[in-house]
Computed example of a mutant assay.
Amino acid sequence: MTTTIAVVNQKGGVGKTTTVASLGAALVEKGQRVLLVDLDPQGGLTFSLGIDPEDIDVTIGDVLLGTKKADDAIVIVEDGMHLLPSNITVSQAEEALVNRTGREQRLRVALDKVAGDYDWILVDCPPTLGVLTVGALSAAQQVLVPLQAETLSHRGVGQLLDTVHDVKQFINSELEILGVLPTMFDGRTNHAQAVIKAIRETYELPIVTPPIPKTIRFAEAPAIGRSILGTSKNHKGAEAYRQVAAGLLNGRASASA
């Protein structure tokens, strides 16, 4: 059984890419087969995992346009995940998709052809609610929303939930919200705790635990082309993602029971 999770937040800088890379590495540590999908034309996930986006010949954009198969684009990164990479040419593909038939379903169709090779597919969505993000929501079973534990960070959550609702109603009836993952969390402050309480009460969303601590180690890891589990494996940030991964595995085992 393959579980596809879209990691979504239209606000940039909230830890989407860090979450995809770190959670993927944590699942690999637990013996899982993991495919990461970089849907952001900026190629942040691709770069973070040690691949220069400018050196990529085949991207997820080519796959979405139907000129290449997913197998043609997949690369293996040092932390053991497989990756469908991205670069700036994906923005051109996004523009072309606007007028293409089945644009919302193209990622799902492409991933269906390789899903049997993986236990988990994690999709790093761009910081917009456009064609690429809707395609990710159409392909996923679950949505994970990384959210910086600061007051202004959750202002766009309502708009995101509206998009998820529309996708569930018209395209993907099986889509469910896994929850909000607090990132850049400083547990010493009452403010961070208050933000999480406000999110829970305002949007009635599950909070994925543990929250991800605020640390410079997350910024340092991409410079080495690894996740934090590869660069600082005993750090509290790495351990937090291991616990989130364990929760995903336990949740799937419970659902299968």
Results as ranks from 00 to 15, higher is better:
75 V>R: 07
208 V>F: 00
198 A>L: 04
230 G>F: 12
101 T>R: 12
106 R>C: 08
21 A>R: 06
1 M>Y: 03
190 N>F: 07
207 I>G: 04
246 A>S: 14
62 D>V: 04
119 D>C: 04
9 N>M: 03
203 Y>T: 06
143 V>W: 01
136 A>C: 08
76 I>Q: 13
66 G>Q: 05
57 D>W: 07
206 P>D: 08
19 T>F: 06
165 H>Q: 15
151 T>R: 09
46 T>P: 00
166 D>T: 13
189 T>W: 09
254 S>H: 14
160 L>P: 00
201 E>D: 15
54 E>W: 08
62 D>Q: 11
65 L>A: 02
63 V>L: 07
147 L>W: 01
32 Q>K: 13
71 D>S: 11
123 V>Y: 09
88 I>M: 09
137 L>Q: 09
36 L>V: 11
60 I>W: 03
22 S>P: 05
167 V>Q: 13
25 A>Q: 07
90 V>S: 02
231 T>G: 01
41 P>Q: 04
177 I>E: 00
82 H>R: 03
239 E>G: 10
147 L>C: 02
172 N>R: 12
142 Q>T: 10
232 S>Y: 12
230 G>M: 12
114 V>Y: 04
197 K>Q: 08
30 K>F: 05
108 R>P: 04
139 A>V: 10
75 V>C: 03
184 M>Y: 07
128 T>S: 15
87 N>M: 02
25 A>D: 07
239 E>Q: 15
168 K>I: 10
100 R>N: 08
194 A>C: 07
22 S>G: 04
188 R>G: 12
153 S>Q: 01
234 N>A: 14
142 Q>S: 09
75 V>S: 03
36 L>D: 09
53 P>T: 04
126 P>V: 10
100 R>G: 06
205 L>I: 01
13 G>L: 04
107 L>Q: 13
230 G>H: 12
58 V>W: 12
66 G>S: 06
214 K>C: 07
191 H>G: 05
15 G>S: 02
5 I>T: 07
192 A>M: 04
164 V>N: 05
153 S>L: 02
90 V>M: 01
234 N>H: 15
118 Y>W: 09
243 Q>R: 14
119 D>W: 06
230 G>R: 13
233 K>T: 12
131 V>Y: 02
212 I>L: 08
3 T>Q: 06
237 G>I: 03
196 I>S: 07
37 V>M: 09
34 V>P: 11
149 A>Q: 05
201 E>N: 13
100 R>M: 15
250 N>V: 14
240 A>Q: 12
236 K>R: 14
143 V>R: 05
253 A>E: 15
76 I>G: 08
99 N>F: 10
94 E>T: 08
45 L>M: 02
15 G>Y: 00
94 E>D: 05
166 D>M: 11
212 I>Q: 04
61 G>Y: 02
257 A>Y: 13
211 P>K: 07
32 Q>C: 08
127 P>C: 12
234 N>T: 15
62 D>W: 09
104 E>M: 11
173 S>R: 15
231 T>K: 01
